[in-house]
Simulated assay, not measured.
Amino acid sequence: MGRASGTEDTDGRCEAGAGTPAGKPPGLSGHRVPRMFEPNEILTTLTGRGLVTAEGCETVRVRYRVVVERRQGGLFAYGDLHGSHAGLRPIWLEPDAQLRLKTGRRLDISLTDLVGDTAEFESTGAVGAL
Rank of each mutant, 00 (worst) to 15 (best):
E120C: 07
D96Q: 06
A119E: 11
R106L: 09
S110Y: 05
G23Q: 05
G48Q: 10
V66K: 03
A129T: 14
R32W: 06
E122I: 12
T44Y: 11
P25F: 09
T53P: 00
I91N: 01
G6N: 12
S84A: 12
A97R: 00
E15S: 04
L101Y: 10
T118H: 02
P39V: 14
C14M: 08
R32H: 11
C14R: 15
G83I: 02
L46N: 07
P90K: 03
Y64R: 06
T103G: 12
A22L: 15
F121M: 08
A97H: 01
P90Q: 08
G79R: 02
D11E: 14
T45S: 15
T44W: 09
V67R: 01
R65I: 07
F76S: 05
C14D: 04
C57N: 07
L130S: 05
G83F: 00
V33L: 12
E69D: 06
D96M: 04
R13N: 15
A86G: 07
Q98T: 14
G87N: 02
L51M: 11
R63K: 11
A86C: 02
Q98E: 12
F76M: 06
D117P: 00
G104I: 13
I91S: 01
L51G: 06
I109M: 08
T44L: 12
S5I: 10
M36Y: 08
R63C: 05
T20A: 12
R105S: 10
L107A: 11
D9F: 06
L93P: 00
G56F: 03
G30W: 14
L75R: 11
A22R: 15
G74N: 09
L51V: 11
G83Q: 00
G125H: 09
Q98V: 06
T59D: 12
G87E: 00
R105T: 13
V67L: 03
R35V: 01
R105D: 13
L46A: 11
L75Q: 11
L114R: 01
P21S: 10
R70W: 01
G48E: 05
T7I: 03
G74I: 06
R71K: 15
I109P: 01
G104N: 08
N40C: 09
G17N: 14
I91W: 00
G83Y: 00
A129F: 12
I109Q: 02
G104W: 02
P25R: 15
L81R: 00
T7R: 10
E69P: 03
P95T: 10
P34M: 07
L43D: 05
A126I: 11
L111Q: 00
L51T: 01
R61H: 14
E122Y: 12
G79Y: 05
P34T: 03
V60L: 04
Y64K: 13
S29G: 15
L93A: 03
S123A: 10
